[in-house]
Design a protein around this nucleic acid. Sequence first.
DNA 1: ACCTGAACACCGTTCAAGT
DNA 2: ACCTGAACACCGTTCAAGT
Lengths: 248, 248
Amino acid sequence: MPADVPAEESRRTPLSRDRVLRAAVAFADGAGIEALSMRRLAQELGVVPMALYKHVANKEELLDGMVEAVVAGLDPHVSGADWKSAVRRRILGARDALVRHAWAAQVIRSRTSPTPAVLAYLDSVIGMFRAGGFSLDLTHHAMHALGSRVLGLTEELFDAPPSPGPRATATAPVSAPAADPAQTAAREAMALRYPHVTELAGAVAHDRSSVVGGRGCDDRFEFEFALDLLLDGFERLHGQGWTSAPRP
Amino acid sequence: MPADVPAEESRRTPLSRDRVLRAAVAFADGAGIEALSMRRLAQELGVVPMALYKHVANKEELLDGMVEAVVAGLDPHVSGADWKSAVRRRILGARDALVRHAWAAQVIRSRTSPTPAVLAYLDSVIGMFRAGGFSLDLTHHAMHALGSRVLGLTEELFDAPPSPGPRATATAPVSAPAADPAQTAAREAMALRYPHVTELAGAVAHDRSSVVGGRGCDDRFEFEFALDLLLDGFERLHGQGWTSAPRP
DNA sequence: ACCTGAACACCGTTCAAGT
DNA sequence: ACCTGAACACCGTTCAAGT
């Protein structure tokens, strides 16, 4: 049940593009993006499927509209400071919004061209670099280097670290050694085939087992680590008067 | 028609998991991943749809197998050098493979847990950092910072830079000013709403219009720019004896 | 035991028939 | 003119009937 679409509203007020989009966002928040279909969304709104097509041309446009709704809701203006902390705060703010809408990262990546709200967002970030004295050249490449991270998307390869057997680390606490001999064998086979991965995973598990509920990695820390590495790099290049093409 | 599955083979030799996977890769290379369905793949192999389920449990496993096939084909061993150029070459090699299989990036991102070939690849990269004297701690965060870029995935937000109207920049050469008044109006409206984006796009178009066929950005350059910024950052932190947690 | 046609429970979207 | 039921052309996968 979508949180911000009261039950009475679902049947009484007439459909509108805005109401369709809000319902789609709420539905994806709750049920996941893979469960969102035109037919299910119509059902959620107490409406025949074809009624949606009055307000969105097709599913692609629905997804565009959902992205638009999330991005348009980002922090309106970050108060002036140096370019670095302005960009930093803006990107971390975007990340917070994407964390609230777990489906958004995937949908944003599936879009092929930017919507108005995304363009406005990018415009503001570019403006921050320019206000900090960055050349067009360096700003251009800095934006590329940030990539989708500029919108707070995480670039992690996998959601979870690898586990020796299926569900193995999820069912047994890290501190307790596995009693199941089959699981132990799988763990040993893994250690043989992927020694460096195993060593790393072991060190991470050990480090974080002291923290309450602290298995896996700290997504926020990793995001900031990478972001700061890039921002520091930009700052250094800017200070050196870096140019992409030393003219011949 | 898939290139590396000769026509005679499609009907004569019996199905095998390997043949299914190779056909799927070839089909996705040619027709795109969105066109790949169990039914179409079966048709391509001259086989009834259900025959595929003898060799892959379901479509998810088919996609896993396709990723496996591509990643397993990566450069077997990069000759020893310093950690930095070893990692650099390995990642750029992976990128080359992903450029050849346009569908792979999207499919890799859709997987939730790493397959054996991916684990082996990650293991080798981790091993390179460790051989370079990196601590487990720094190696861990460096791998996170690389994210999916470690496999050569590009992190760009959009494939193409924004254009004022639909297909506007695609149909008209950048050097020739638009004659269509509606297009000119759209361009001006865009310049007003997104001044920084417009300025940047203009500078990029101007810079690259001298190159033959050179519209848009140089993906390879941008990838290396971001990669080197990260590797330089790792090197600097390593040299400083960086640690994530200054113990209390 | 193996293979496979038909069927099931879905999709997004078109279209023509109803009001 | 607007709305909508049925239909179309697909999916991935189950299952029971055929060999």
